Structures are given as C-alpha cells and as structure tokens.
Amino acid sequence: MSTTEPAPGTNLAALRKARGWSQAYLARKASISVSLLSKIEVGDRTLTPAVAAALGKPLGLTMAEILGRASMEQDAEAHLSALRSAVRDYDLPGGHAVHEDQITAALECAGRLRDGAQVTGLVRMLPKLLRDATVHAHAANTVAAWAVLSDVYSTVYWLAARHRWMDMAELAVTRQRWAIEQQTNPLGSALAARDRAGTYLNDGDFEGGLVIVDRAIAAAQSGLAGQERAFAVGVLNLRGMTLAGRLTDKVEGKREAERHIASAADAAEWFGRDWNRHHMIFGPQNTATHVLATRLDLGKPHEALSAAEEIDAVLDGLPPTRITPTRINMARAQLDVGDRDAALESLTLAWDAAPQMARIHPMGREVFRVVSSLHRRSNPELLRLSRLSGIPL
C-alpha cells in the first residue's frame, strides 16, 4: 500500500508559507484572484491541474510538485531502489539467460497489475522484469524484443507519473524512446511520444506537450495504416485533448481541444469496443471519458456532466485505471455545480474501483479534502474514506 503526502491544496498552502509569501503576493504573481487562492487553501475549492501549473511558475515548481509527490511505504523502498538501478543499467544487460516465454508471462502479469491499479504489486515485480527484458532485447535484437522493453519502460513511466516521481518518469520515457529506436517500429514510436508528452503535462508545459503530440500524430498518419494507425492517432489525440484543456488561454484551449476531440472521434469509428494494446486503451469509451475530463478542465462542469449521462455504459468493461479517474472527475464536476452529495457518491465509487490508485491520485485526494470540508458534519462514508486516504476530517 502506498502512503501519500498532504492533499494538493494543503500542500500548496505549506509551500507558500515556507517561502514566507502572502496569499495576495502569490495570487498576483500567478495571475489568479486572492479569493480563489484562499478558497483553495481552506478547502472550499479544489486545486485544479491548470491552477496548480499557474501557481507553480512563480514558485519555481512543476505542476507535479505543487500537487505533491506520493511515496511508498518503507517495505517498498527497496523495490523502488532496485527499479532505479535497473533503469540506470539500460545498456548493461546481465549475463543470465532469459527465455522469451518468461518475458511474455511476466509482461502479461505486469499488464494485469497496471490495469487493476495494483501499484504495490507492480513496483515489486518491475525491477526483475526490466532487467530480464533488457537482457532479452540485447540478445534477440528483434523488433518484437525491443518493443517489449519499450513497453516495460512505459509501465515504469506510468508508475512514476502516478506517484509524481518526475525524475524517474523523465528518465523512463527517454529509455522508452531509446529502446524503440533500436529497431524501426512506428506504432512503438507513437506510444513513446504519447508518454513523453505526459512528462510535459505533469511539468505544466501544456504548449510543449501539444507540439510533441502533433508531431507524433503526423508521423503515425504517414507511417501506419488501418486500425493500427487509428489506435496510435487515437491515443495521441486523447493526450492532446488533456493538454489543450489545461491551457491558460481557455479560448485557445477550447479550439485545440475540439480539434483533438474531433480527430479522436474519427479514429474511434474504427473500433466497436475499446482496444487495450501495450497497456494503453483507445476506442469510443475511453474517448468519452477524456471528453468529460477535458470539458471539466476547460471550466465547463455542466458540459462535463452532460457528457457523463451514460457513464455506467461508458465505463462498462474498462479497467480500474480508467474507471477511478473518471469517477473522480465526475465528483469534481459535481462539486463545481454545488452537488456535494453526488460528489461524495462518485468519490466512493472511485475508491471502491481502485483504492490504491485513488489513494495516490492527486485529484482524488483533493476532491475528498473539499468534500469533507464542505459537508461540515462527518458521516460513515466520510469517515471510511478518511481512514482509506489518510486525510483527517
């Protein structure tokens, strides 16, 4: 089980006070209202990713640092250290023999843990899997073997990004790109670009991330065909709409978001149900969850909730890694329109779907902080989520 730092709004207040800055000074530097900053810090409003990025700039911090890192319990620290060592030894394959079927089985197991948001189990098995995949890729030197290694690095990135360990995330995407470049693989290149854009997202450099996405879409459109091209273009557009929704200029953000939404919808027409390939998901269902999140990031909670009218059908069959963030986004939208009871219900569904992910998800923790603050009076469900999250009422 993971342990975490304070919820984002609480973390922000601590960072501001540590510098000796007043709310008025930070708000002016970040070009936001003092009223909004005050409400965020006391727990009356959620700290959104876009506002976190804006506040991070004058503080000299990334969006991920404002939201707060999630750490592991002490018994997982040794596994994390071993994983860092394996990432560092990317071009130093060990002398042990590795059979391809071993790699395949281990990669499938890692995929199940990732899809199930079982972060504790994942961090325990990744060091050995990464070393074995490195040995196999260097020995076999085939497109498939290097693609497997790239997939493992993608999972390392996923784990690191979920915890806001951005040093490891940055290194993982660099290694992922290196692995896929050893043998020509247009699909692998597209997926590596999608993860690289994710590091820009967590840094708060939304414009830079969009450049990476658009360049990768152009390459995928020229280098791939059929459903494989639709899949690559689709997952890149999902990343693009998330980046666009968080642009400071909401007029530009809406324009860019609508462009990516339309392109993703076109690509989704190739699929009846969502594909889960290389531990990434694309199709009409995941597109719908991203549209909901993007409308919310653009400051349109009513539009976000309208997009979620058939949410149970949309989430049917998707893994917990998609269900939990979507339920959290619904809770955030419900808070924005003043429906605290519905927000608590959505948050409960998010925790029930993937408790380990909800515990380390910054918006999951932030929404709970605000929900508990606004309810004023505890109830059994608030008490249960307080125990699970480690956030006191």
Rank of each mutant, 00 (worst) to 15 (best):
L385D: 03
M1Y: 13
G364C: 10
L243H: 08
R112Q: 12
P6S: 03
A105I: 09
G116E: 05
W178Q: 11
T324V: 02
A353M: 05
A193K: 01
A293R: 07
R295T: 04
R162K: 15
L344R: 03
H361Y: 14
L55F: 06
P320V: 01
G226L: 02
M241Q: 15
A172I: 12
E73H: 12
V34H: 07
L247P: 04
P6G: 03
T199K: 15
E5R: 13
A216R: 13
H260W: 14
A86D: 02
A76P: 01
Q182S: 05
T184I: 10
P49K: 02
A193H: 06
A172S: 15
T324H: 01
G94L: 09
A133K: 02
T120P: 03
A267H: 08
A313K: 13
L80I: 06
N237F: 04
D151S: 03
L83P: 08
L36A: 10
E269H: 14
A110D: 00
I261R: 08
D151W: 09
D89G: 06
A13L: 08
Y25L: 05
I180N: 05
A70H: 08
K17M: 02
K29T: 00
T294H: 13
V213C: 09
M241F: 13
L36V: 12
A86I: 06
L113A: 02
A313H: 15
T104M: 13
G240H: 06
P58M: 10
T289A: 03
D249Y: 11
A218G: 04
L129E: 04
M63D: 00
L80E: 07
R112S: 03
E170Q: 11
D101P: 01
A331H: 05
M1L: 10
I261Q: 08
E381T: 08
T294C: 15
I217K: 09
L236E: 00
L37C: 13
I103S: 11
A220V: 01
A147Q: 13
D167V: 13
T199N: 14
V34T: 14
L159N: 02
P325I: 02
V119H: 14
S154G: 15
L298G: 08
V156P: 02
G253C: 05
S346W: 03
W158C: 01
E100W: 10
K17V: 00
G226F: 01
F231D: 00
V143I: 06
D132E: 09
G226K: 02
F271V: 01
T3W: 14
I311P: 04
P186E: 06
V367H: 10
H260F: 15
L129I: 11
A30T: 05
L315R: 10
Q176F: 13
R196L: 12
P49N: 01
E252L: 12
T4V: 15
R295N: 11
R175F: 12
L159K: 06
T287N: 11
